[in-house]
Design a binder for these strands. Structure first.
Lengths: 68, 68
DNA sequence: GAAAAATGCAAAGCGAACTTGACATAAAAT
DNA sequence: ATTTTATGTCAAGTTCGCTTTGCATTTTTC
């Protein structure tokens, strides 16, 4: 799943490690999410969005989630 | 995690099974999420919110997610 | 150009999300 | 009252989110 995380991190001049600590996961988790290796859990998605003062929908790209 | 799913289902007069099929999971998944047995994945949370024309934040209660 | 910081990637392990199938009870309909 | 529909729950299995550790490569800084 695509996300705006790399873009938002760069805007805020944050490394993956700083951000990972801020939201309570390891750096590898952030790397894996940024590289599309897997999709964040709902609570983590919330923490990341909140960290940037955005909504989940503003950070994560759901355009490829099967439409109902 | 608390959700407004039971309330929204009742407003729309939907059974767990109808809703489960609509969002592409089994009835047990909806039951388990409603009963707090586990937390929906991010894509499923999105599908459920979209199904009711709401945002994820409007359907799921993040008040107990550890604040940053 | 060398040192330091940041990122990518791999493997093994644990617990969580979801499935299938099946049973029990509760609520609604006729 | 009996049938049907809706909900809760249990167990076993698969896949996925996340961790830990560790190494390789890229980017930054001095």
């Amino acid at each position: 799943m695509k996300t705006r995380i790399p873009e938002l991190r760069k805007q805020h001049k944050l490394s993956q490690e700083e951000m990972a600590m801020a939201v309570g996961v390891t750096r590898q988790t952030i790397t894996s999410i940024e590289c599309g290796k897997y999709v964040a859990s709902l609570p983590l998605a919330y923490k990341i969005a909140k960290y940037f003062g955005l909504t989940i929908e503003e950070v994560f790209d759901f355009s490829e989630v099967e439409e109902i």
